[in-house]
Design a protein around this nucleic acid. Sequence first.
DNA 1: CGGGCAATTGATGCCTATCAACGGGTGTGG
DNA 2: CCACACCCGTTGATAGGCATCAATTGCCCG
Lengths: 241, 241
Amino acid sequence: MTGSLIENDKRCSECLARGMCMARALIEPQLSEWSGALTRITVPQGQAVIKEGAPLDKIYIVQMGCFLSHTSEYQKNSAVNIKNAGDLLGVGGIEKRRYPYTSVAAADCNVVCAIPYQKFLELLAGRPRLIDCFASVMSRELNKQTERVLMMKNTNAMQKLALFLVSTSENHTARSMSGTDIKLLMSRADIGDFLGITIETVSRVFSQFEQFNILRITGKNLTILDLDGLRRVASGTFPVN
Amino acid sequence: MTGSLIENDKRCSECLARGMCMARALIEPQLSEWSGALTRITVPQGQAVIKEGAPLDKIYIVQMGCFLSHTSEYQKNSAVNIKNAGDLLGVGGIEKRRYPYTSVAAADCNVVCAIPYQKFLELLAGRPRLIDCFASVMSRELNKQTERVLMMKNTNAMQKLALFLVSTSENHTARSMSGTDIKLLMSRADIGDFLGITIETVSRVFSQFEQFNILRITGKNLTILDLDGLRRVASGTFPVN
DNA sequence: CGGGCAATTGATGCCTATCAACGGGTGTGG
DNA sequence: CCACACCCGTTGATAGGCATCAATTGCCCG
């Protein structure tokens, strides 16, 4: 982590992401102890928090914003994940003690809580509820990836994009933002990469959504006109049923 | 877990899967304590260990054999995972306290070590090295799924099958079995399901591999004649380069 | 021996990648 | 202030890979 990142010192007890963070397991005085072990870091848009191949050093918890993970495997620059508040960054590196991908800040304002992995283990020890919460967050990550595997196998391009938009909308809603007026943080290339389709296809499907009056699009700003229709597309039951 | 499953009482200290199991972190006397908390269960081929939708009760560690996980999501019966010795079964259920998929024993002889999740947490709590190992195994699962997402996006049918066969071969080798004479535990349908292609395509590609003298196939028994060629196919550099 | 499922092989069509051209916005330099 | 370049996004034409449908063969088990 370079010096250009900005530290701040908000405490866990007043954190907006508490409900989604693994530290929700803790109450005082343990919460303060935990809070004191963290370094809160504001990451400018476009900057990497962890880098593919670097030795595992710290684990990061996303407090605010959005991070996109990429790997150089398979020759291409492949998007592997999207991380939002409460998600863990860097845990993929525990297996081989090296981060397997690069994670870059994508939103206007991005904050992570950093903790050295060794310290992390120490704090977990003796706190079964925290271990449970950690396991739960890891389980969530695992299920998220499994979900993506299933999506890749079983959906066509239109369903993929519908699923992506529904998921984005729900993410926004869960964080008290508008679920219908959305500013995309990702380029068409990022989206296509994430979903395993080309930018041309992304563009074409977006156009079709506009024709169906499901979406209104102006560059990266989009308005969902028919969330329910989008859900039907996602489930493969559009337009009938 | 039904009564038709057979229990045995081998101890961890003499387990063949030690090197791949999270309990490798432990030494005596903690190992015995851990070992005592486990129930070892022999699962007959075809029988389920965990069932989709059932409440999270126990976590299982695969000691021997092979397990295939399926989910009913996306209308189809979708293969989501293959578990071998050292892998954890049921951890996907920690997030929502319900197993998200069904895991069925696939090999001739399958053994799992069962531990109630609450007991599991208690045992972890006092042992930072065990927590580390647990995190490491979870990280491995996560990376395995991420790897699959990348594969789904970036490879064609032939590469998928080559990757599958190379991976199967390496799994066998790592467990002191022949890496070239392999008896498949999965049907063409299972394989196709796992890789996201149809059984017809699986069959066709297998035939091509035979024509290339890369494979010899007799039903579920196959012999890898050219593992290196298979690797080249997997990496997309066949036949040239 | 026959029923039924698994696997193979063939014919066809669709989805989406690929290649290509174009429009619009932004930034830079003259 | 305008011209130009460049990148991003859109739209069109084409081709190829794989799914789908269909028919046949092989195999296991009663």
